Amino acid sequence: MYEIAVIGAGPAGASAALFAAKAGKKTLLIDNDKGMTRRGWFENFYGISEVGGPELVETGHKQAVKFGAELVSEQAINLTSSGNGFVIETEDGIIYEAKHVILATGALTDLAAKAGVETKDGTEPRIKTVVAVDAEGKTNIAGIWAAGTVAGVSVHAIITAGDGAKVAINVISELNGARYVDHDVLKA
């Protein structure tokens, strides 16, 4: 069983998986290869002069995998509660189990709604519905979290990436029973 499964591997999802894996949590990152970031061009992403969406997404995947996240190319179609967590079923019939799930599905709320997660009207242009979350990223179902565009934050990649990191830190903190902080320092 994974401690944290992230469904959606764009900036929000890959960032969440990166932080979770770097914190030593057994992490699954599910990518359906259909995210809107892949179609973008970015000249407003802090620390990068310019980058195409496909390269940005692939870099995020590599970072998460570097720290131990397992990346799978699947389409999650069902999310159900089980004894100690959740069961994620994919289009190919593969089953994954996780204690916590972070939804980072961009503009798509179908999986969340099917799982019983509350949704609400979106405020971003072209984003009609989002998952209802609290300030930490928690949904109405304990153990299911949401980050990025699906959680109602701005569709800008830099903002969704930060939100994914924030939500992962909150999940890690809950798992650890104490506030988690991840700060690297330059090596002398």
Rank of each mutant, 00 (worst) to 15 (best):
D134T: 10
V155L: 13
V153D: 01
N176A: 15
G164C: 03
E124I: 14
S173I: 01
A168E: 05
T139H: 04
E174N: 15
E118N: 12
E174I: 11
A146F: 10
G148T: 00
V133Q: 02
V171N: 02
A151D: 11
W145M: 06
S173P: 13
V171Q: 05
I158A: 13
G152A: 14
S154Q: 11
V150H: 03
A165K: 11
H156I: 12
T119R: 03
T160W: 00
G148K: 02
I172V: 15
V130G: 03
I141K: 12
R126L: 05
E118W: 09
A151N: 10
S173G: 13
G162I: 00
T119K: 09
A142Q: 12
K138L: 06
T119I: 09
A142T: 11
D121T: 11
S173R: 09
A168P: 13
V150C: 15
G137Y: 10
T149E: 13
G143T: 04
I141W: 06
V133F: 10
V131Y: 01
G152L: 13
A165Q: 11
A146R: 01
N176I: 06
S154C: 10
A151Q: 09
S154V: 12
I141M: 08
I159L: 13
I159F: 01
G137F: 12
G148M: 03
T139F: 04
T160Y: 03
T119E: 05
G143C: 06
D163N: 14
L175Y: 01
D163H: 14
K138D: 04
I144H: 03
G177E: 11
A146Y: 05
G177M: 06
K166A: 03
N140L: 08
K120S: 12
I127F: 10
I172A: 02
G164Y: 13
L175V: 15
T123R: 13
E118C: 07
I158S: 15
G177L: 10
G148D: 03
I169V: 15
P125T: 14
K166F: 02
K166E: 01
E124M: 14
A178R: 14
T119D: 12
T123V: 14
L175C: 06
I169Q: 05
A168D: 07
N170A: 06
A151P: 06
A151I: 11
G152P: 04
E174Q: 15
A135W: 03
T129N: 12
D121W: 00
T139C: 07
N176L: 14
T119W: 04
I141T: 05
K166W: 01
T160I: 08
N140E: 06
S154A: 12
V167M: 06
T123S: 14
I159H: 03
A151Y: 04
V130L: 02
H156P: 00
N170Q: 12
V150K: 04
G122R: 02
V153S: 03
